[in-house]
Amino acid sequence: MKIHLTSVLVDDQAAALHFYTEVLGFLKKHDVPLGEQDRWLTVVSPEEPGGTELLLEPARHPAARTYRDALVEDGIPLAQFTVDDVAAEYERLSALGVRFTQKPLETGPVTTAVLDDTCGNLIQIASRPR
């Protein structure tokens, strides 16, 4: 068994594609129309184009809003991505207008920060453990 795909629920797929590619820097992998308004839309890391895909999934289920709002209120990230240097990513993304709900924080062997993906989720970035 392998983890080939994971997903985040997004308010708007077009806006999510922009944020996850143009701002975070992922690459679009699959973009297949599904029905009248939805797409099977995945992105991958440029460092690992054949690696795990992230599905930008429409958050249309009525319970999705309640669930995601509760997480965001408490500052809880829905997903975590690994970066080489959290402080450098914080500077780069802040300059692009990204809002952080947690600035870089050293917690034992890893440094983390939490950002708003503008699509209804908080995302944690974390350094690899030293």
């Binding site: 408490d74 809880i76 983390t112 939490v114």
Partner: peptide
């Protein structure tokens, strides 16, 4: 200015 998540992490 910390979220509940950050306070718990600390």
């Amino acid at each position: 200015g910390q979220t509940l998540f950050e306070i718990c992490a600390r």
